[in-house]
């Protein structure tokens, strides 16, 4: 029997997946506008810092919890973690991004007839929630799914930088190869993280995102 897991994972992490992630910069656009990312290495430090200190403590460990909850068919837990992730989004725009990506992915998964995608949470489904569901249904192992999930986030941040900074294509490719080595340790951390340590607070990122909501002229959505 053929194994399509890798192909399914490539499908899910493709920037062509029609969920609209490209429209968001997660505070990066404001950070550029405010002149925070001018120095050599500043952009790299911005993306690495968020990956290691925010994504690894929230999105990745939540992806694991959604995956396990869907695996157990535990809709109460799915719903709880969905509320938890929404409660942890620092600003209006970060919550809105998660809602819009989640709703778009749900629409896609329903049309692909993924079992469970139509389930209604008591609030809009988060992107990680449905990403876990489809990963599980495609039989993608959790560790691979987490790496793919982090990869698509990283690629999107780099793509945002090519527009916001703007960063040249060669420089962007160098940066992505440099930063991708942070993904496996971030996933390892996320796999072990206990419930009571979940969650984020990156004051600078929260400020940047809230200020982006009121930025005068924007390329990225808010």
């Amino acid at each position: 029997m053929q194994n399509y897991r890798l192909l399914h994972l490539m499908h899910l992490v493709s920037p062509a997946l029609p969920v609209g992630a490209y429209a968001y910069s997660q505070g990066q656009e404001y950070a550029v506008d405010a002149g925070w990312l001018v120095a050599d290495g500043a952009l790299e430090d911005w993306i690495a810092g968020i990956l290691e200190n925010s994504f690894a403590y929230l999105d990745l460990p939540l992806l694991k919890r959604f995956y396990c909850a869907w695996q157990a068919g535990d809709l109460v837990a799915v719903n709880y973690w969905n509320d938890y992730l929404r409660a942890s989004r620092e600003t209006h725009e970060l919550l809105l991004e998660d809602e819009q990506l989640g709703v778009a992915l749900q629409r896609l998964l329903v049309s692909l007839e993924i079992d469970g995608a139509e389930n209604k949470c008591s609030a809009a489904p988060c992107f990680a929630n449905l990403f876990a569901l489809v990963g599980l249904r495609r039989e993608i192992p959790l560790e691979d799914l987490m790496q793919g999930f982090a990869w698509s986030w990283l690629e999107n941040q780099i793509a945002a930088a090519t527009k916001a900074v703007p960063l040249g294509q060669t420089h962007a490719q160098k940066l992505i190869t440099k930063l991708m080595v942070l993904i496996p340790p971030a996933c390892d951390l996320a796999l072990e993280l206990p419930d009571e340590q979940l969650g984020v607070g990156l004051p600078g990122l929260s400020m940047a995102s809230a200020k982006h909501e009121r930025q005068y002229s924007r390329l990225f959505r808010s």
């Binding site: 950070a31 925070w36 990312l37 500043a42 430090d45 911005w46 810092g49 968020i50 290691e52 200190n53 990156l202 004051p203 600078g204 990122l205 940047a208």
Partner: peptide
């Protein structure tokens, strides 16, 4: 890093 970086406490 959080204490010194712009994404953290700056």
């Amino acid at each position: 890093k959080l204490q010194a970086s712009v994404w953290g406490l700056n």
